[in-house]
Amino acid sequence: MAVLSVSNIKKAFGSNVVLTDISFDVEEGEVVAIIGPSGSGKSTILRCINQLETIDGGQITLLDDNMIAGTSPDGKPIYSSPQVLRKMRLNIGLVFQNFNLFPHFSVMRNVTEAPIHVLKMPKEQAVEEAKDLLAKMGLSDKHDAYPYQLSGGQQQRVSIARALALHPEVLFFDEPTSALDPELTGEILKVIRGLAREKHTMVIVTHEMAFARDVADRVIFMDQGVIVEQGDPRQVINHPREERTKLFLKRYSEDSQD
């Protein structure tokens, strides 16, 4: 059963069309990797699903909730009620490229603030759950640290714990390793691999081709706002069918060898 269903998404910034007609489903427990050149719209699609951007057309369905309730006479989509949108948002966890931790909160409070004040979870329970999550992220000794005292990799692990604390149905990663030094990339990829083994439903926008091939159940290749090709990771990355995919992967492997 599809947990998340994206159909015919259109998005433009002014006259600049970023998403032309994007459709894909994500099944429960599935890991989907989205790859493609910069500016292909891969981050924008995550941001549209997470309501950080509005869409110009199409439908996004998460479990039983539709993001778009109808169409206005001038063809613009009408968004569903704030309650529905809020519920959808809480069912999606988002991990940012730049972590976006709250610098004035300790690690523990970064993880517990939303469960306590958004889900209205009792504080003791939120702290217990946060302890487990942070232990899983290898950060048991960092409860009282502030983000500035942590390495980039540690900060990103806190932000993964923060996203998981709300028990989202789907976890999104928007280029989770792009802001990290190469030697710190591995620790984040290891954490994501662990989450995949636990059958978390995940959508990962990434530039790490080898990682996408290993961890994903399905790879989507995007270019210029359209899905050019999608399918089995080994097929798409090792034996792409489309010319544009071949070109991108060829250029990519050349760049990586530099």
């Binding site: 950080l52 948002r89 999606i92 988002l94 603030e113 939303a114 004040h117 958004v118 932000s159 709300l166």
Partner: peptide, 23 residues
């Protein structure tokens, strides 16, 4: 304030008032 702070708060489901007063 960096826009990422608003985006992180929004993605975590904080209301506008909570985002402003807490974050």
């Amino acid at each position: 304030m960096p826009v990422g702070q608003y985006e992180a708060a929004g993605a975590l489901g904080f209301t506008k008032a909570q985002t402003f007063f807490r974050i």
